[in-house]
Amino acid sequence: MPVHFGYTISKPRAIDIDHNNLRKSDEILREMPELQTCIGCGACTAVCTAGNLTQFNFRKVHTLVRRGEYQGAYEEMNKCMLCGKCRLVCPRGINTRGVVMLIKRKLGDF
């Protein structure tokens, strides 16, 4: 029986690339290589209808997905209203709505 000392061992917060399974991430990037051209400017998040009212941060979620951090990504992407404003502002011309749909399709079971 484990003993309880009144605290638990904190779990590491680090993104561990050695440990993460990058298969889904690779699939997503193969289908939409332009997602890799993101330079993290944040324009998508700045104009995001959902992001101004909820914690939704499109830039952060897709970056985490690219690092193999899939937990909660599907639920986050569900907050997107698919209004398409982000696609209008993206300086790299990324089909951001397409990214939302692709991540939802690939990570529905996470």
């Binding site: 000392f5 009144g6 605290y7 638990t8 061992i9 904190s10 779990k11 590491p12």
Partner: peptide, 14 residues
């Protein structure tokens, strides 16, 4: 502080 020990022990654990 007992409440912080989980963070403390996690370093030795690592």
């Amino acid at each position: 502080v007992q409440a912080n020990r989980g963070y403390s022990i996690a370093n030795s654990h690592k």
